[in-house]
Amino acid sequence: MRGASAGWASMAHRWADFITPSTLQLAPLLEVLLEPISCVEQLSALQLGLQEVLVNAVRHGNANDPGKCLRIRRIVTPRWWVFQVQDQGCGLPLEDRSVHLPDQADALCGRGLFLIDACFDDVRWSARGNRVQVALRR
């Protein structure tokens, strides 16, 4: 039994890479990405936040172009669940990375970054802005 847990621990500290076409058919992808998460209390926050990250990457980053891909990386550590999502777009400019709700309650856009920030303990953007790393403390 001891060897099995040691093997799992070494596997858990490696990045798992996923490359997928840029589509809004996200349910199967989310299921695979969240498969190692066993904490029911945090699963819904992870699911909501990660779905929002993926939707933003497909819609805004890749402009709904199914010919483009998303690259997702996941690592599970004893203290964190970490996901990186990268699209093939130009990137989100620094000045557009604010996390406030839109002024209009019925606005069609503007809630995504707020939801992402609310669901994760740490959100970091690449300099270019086409990759975001989100993490939730376990």
Rank of each mutant, 00 (worst) to 15 (best):
1 M>L: 03
2 R>H: 12
3 G>L: 11
5 S>R: 10
8 W>H: 11
8 W>Y: 11
10 S>I: 14
11 M>E: 15
12 A>F: 11
13 H>N: 15
13 H>K: 15
13 H>F: 07
16 A>G: 08
18 F>P: 00
20 T>R: 15
24 L>A: 10
26 L>H: 06
28 P>Q: 01
34 L>H: 07
35 E>A: 15
35 E>P: 00
39 C>L: 05
40 V>P: 01
41 E>C: 01
41 E>L: 13
42 Q>P: 00
43 L>N: 03
44 S>N: 14
45 A>I: 03
47 Q>R: 13
48 L>S: 02
49 G>R: 01
50 L>H: 00
51 Q>H: 11
53 V>T: 12
56 N>S: 14
57 A>T: 14
59 R>E: 13
60 H>S: 14
62 N>S: 08
64 N>L: 12
64 N>I: 08
65 D>E: 03
67 G>D: 09
67 G>P: 03
68 K>A: 12
69 C>K: 10
71 R>V: 14
72 I>F: 07
72 I>G: 05
74 R>A: 07
75 I>L: 11
75 I>V: 15
75 I>Q: 12
76 V>E: 13
77 T>K: 03
77 T>D: 02
78 P>H: 06
84 Q>D: 08
87 D>A: 05
89 G>W: 05
91 G>K: 07
93 P>L: 07
94 L>C: 09
94 L>A: 10
95 E>G: 04
96 D>G: 05
99 V>Q: 15
100 H>G: 12
102 P>M: 01
104 Q>A: 09
105 A>W: 02
105 A>V: 07
106 D>C: 05
111 R>E: 00
112 G>L: 02
114 F>P: 00
114 F>G: 04
115 L>R: 02
116 I>P: 00
119 C>S: 15
120 F>M: 05
121 D>R: 11
121 D>P: 07
123 V>E: 07
124 R>S: 09
126 S>H: 02
126 S>V: 04
128 R>F: 09
128 R>N: 06
131 R>F: 08
132 V>I: 15
133 Q>R: 09
133 Q>A: 12
136 L>F: 03
137 R>M: 06
